[in-house]
Amino acid sequence: MTRISFGRILNTQTIALVSVLLLNWILFPGFFKIEWQDGRLFGSLIDVLNRGAPVAILAIGMTAVIATKGVDLSVGAVMAMSGAVAATLVVAGYSGPVAVGGALAVGLACGLWNGILVAVLDIQPIIATLVLMVAGRGIAQLITEGSIVTFSDPTLIFIGTGSFLGMPMPVVIAFALMVLVTLAVRKTAIGLFIEAVGINRSAATLAGIRSRLLLISVYSVSGLCAAIAGIIVAGDIRGADANNAGLWLELDAILAAVIGGTSLLGGRFSIPMSVIGALIIQAMNTGILVSGYPPEFNLVVKAGIITVILMIQSPLAGQVLGFFGRKKSGASR
């Protein structure tokens, strides 16, 4: 029993995360320092969690979508839209909860739209979601009229910058969402169905799985996740920045899912592993910030580390490592 759980924790993703964190510590000795300040935890490690939360939340939805052999390119734009909607609602005098509800409804509607394009009209996911990726940011810019809509609504600000039991709210929300969605897919048959549809949609339909409904649901969840991330990002800077909110984050979310071991060809997926993938990406970002390297190095360093992680995960490396693993276990027998 203990061996199983140990094996579950000790995998490529967690090793990569720990390695990146250790690397950060080497570059910046104060990296693991955590202080209690103004009723909340404060430190670089907390920053990694806090800043990683939006991408982690996107990755939760994205992982399910990718597992169905799809992809949702619109999440960044949906973030911008949901933030814009929330901000304009509170500026127009609505209460914070109404604004949050409105933003979530927009995310859900976007997800439904994507799901219908993919599941009912059978449009390739990359194209179907590209529509909203392009149009969504435009719509967000229309809502904010091109400028940053700033607000001082306490609900939205709490979601973005508040804390619960010392943990920043974005971290609490991301963690809760991860647990919730993981339970929702693993304690029901939904996870199995998602994998089945991703591996062979035709066979899944023949086996009696309502694949259309499933796909629509999965894209809707992705839309909702994006909306939540959008509210967090807007709350964080107390303003909806339609031009920059969520920009390129769809790519980070896809990367997080891939680092988390979900194949772009659909099938097996793990939501916690994707969240760890998101944290790996953020750990690199934060590491670069505290290390003091000039910004010209950022992208090169990031690309290099990601390449190493993906290479370790590649089937070939798996064979090589597996070979050594077998040899070792053979010796111990």
Partner: peptide, 15 residues
């Protein structure tokens, strides 16, 4: 951007 400005400043403050 505002949000990257905040994130980078957070890093600077820690460092």
């Amino acid at each position: 951007t505002r949000s990257k400005g905040k994130e980078v400043m957070e890093g600077f403050l820690k460092a």
